[in-house]
């Protein structure tokens, strides 16, 4: 399913965080949203699933603008993996993942057998079967990230949005999450958008990158064509060398020093 932002503007108070951003997430692709701290990446992500009121422009999911979808209907096609989640009471992993089924359960009946089977499948897919009965507050960072992904997957979405999913994960878990995101985007009718800080991972895994800088989308396209020394200087304010990794064939960014005039 298609997800598109048209001239999205959004601000906290008077200061605009997004100043007219347009992008389109196409079926089958993994889209990486990158940019320096404070560029508006997380805000844009929140706009894309209706968590943030817009001050201008619109977000279109499928054929309809987001406000014309009900909240339950959105949750059935669009899943979000947030940076963090703090359940007030330490529920078991199985139950926490099961709450991803909410929008597909009967409104007042709670989960059915079908929902339970779907949860089992998600637990298996993310390798969480052994942890299913553990309380969510006893997990490591990497484990809890997998639980958050499993919860979003339980929604059976066509579109998945990831908000900095590899932050604070070790190398192995970073690869795990990126592999999952790419595999998800390759499913029939699916697509995924991922907010990343690590440009190397972004260049290696994403089909297209969007570079957000001070509320504007300043560059967009395939990683090889998008990431340039000039862009890194202008947007991130660093002198960097771009090298191609012989092992992966992907661009690798080596930051050298702060640029004199950012």
């Amino acid at each position: 399913m298609k997800l598109a932002a048209h001239e999205v503007r959004c601000g906290y108070g008077a200061q605009d965080v997004l100043r007219g951003v347009s992008l389109e997430l196409r079926e089958g692709e993994l889209y990486g949203l990158v940019g320096p701290n404070g560029a508006g990446k997380s805000t844009l992500l929140r706009c894309l699933y209706g968590a943030q009121p817009l001050s201008g422009g619109e977000v279109v999911l499928g054929e309809r603008p987001l406000p014309r979808w009900g909240r339950r209907a959105i949750a059935r096609v669009l899943g979000v993996v947030p940076q963090r989640s703090n359940p007030a009471f330490p529920v078991a992993v199985r139950h926490f993942v099961g709450m991803g089924r909410f929008a597909r359960e009967p409104l007042l009946g709670g989960p059915t057998r079908e929902d339970e089977r779907a949860v089992d499948a998600c637990l298996a897919e993310l390798g969480l079967v052994a942890l299913a009965d553990r309380a969510v507050d006893e997990l490591s960072g990497g484990e809890f990230r997998r639980v958050l992904i499993a919860q979003a997957l339980a929604q059976e979405p066509a579109v998945l949005l990831f908000d900095e999913p590899v932050q604070q994960l070790d190398l192995k878990h970073q690869l795990e999450v990126m592999e999952f995101a790419r595999a998800f985007a390759r499913r029939a009718g699916a697509s995924a958008l991922i907010v990343l800080h690590d440009l190397g991972l972004a260049a290696r895994y994403c089909d297209r990158l969007g570079v957000l800088h001070a509320g504007h989308l300043v560059a967009e396209g395939p990683p090889d064509a998008t990431l340039t020394v000039e862009l890194l200087r202008r947007v991130w304010g660093v002198e960097a060398s771009l090298e191609r990794s012989p092992a992966t064939g992907a661009l690798h960014v080596v930051p050298l020093r702060e640029a004199r005039d950012a």
Binding site: A51, R72, I74, V80, S85, M99, F102, A103, Q151
Partner: peptide, 8 residues
């Protein structure tokens, strides 16, 4: 935040 994200 989470409840709305999941459709409530």
């Amino acid at each position: 935040e989470d409840a709305r994200r999941l459709g409530q």
